[in-house]
Amino acid sequence: MEIIMAIAAGILTMCAVYLILSKSVLRIIIGTGLLSHAAHLLVMTMGGLKTGAAPVLKDGVTQYTDPLPQALVLTAIVISFGVTAFFLVLAYRAYQELGTDNLEEMKGTDTHD
């Protein structure tokens, strides 16, 4: 199971890198979304995958799932949700102001104001 998850995280990263290297801002944002998904999947996998056990640690309980990776992933998801939303709004504003969503075409205007 861990192997499959690791490969899945790898494929997600691969797609993310491909998308981030493109010129359109929207594709880049989708790429960053995929990249954070890959990171979250990796956290889950590294925490150890077990099924059928509750996330408790108590005397006498031998079978338990580590609750920490789930808490971490939840936090990271919330953060990446917020950042992606901000990124989208910013990209939209930039599209309105600069009239293009192509990073190539944005280049070379007034760098030194």
């Binding site: 917020g82 939303a85 989208l88 709004v89 939209y92 309105q96």
Partner: peptide, 13 residues
């Protein structure tokens, strides 16, 4: 609050 702010910001324009 945050979700609706984001959606309104994009939706309003």
């Amino acid at each position: 609050g945050v979700t609706m702010t984001i959606i309104q910001t994009i939706g309003e324009s």
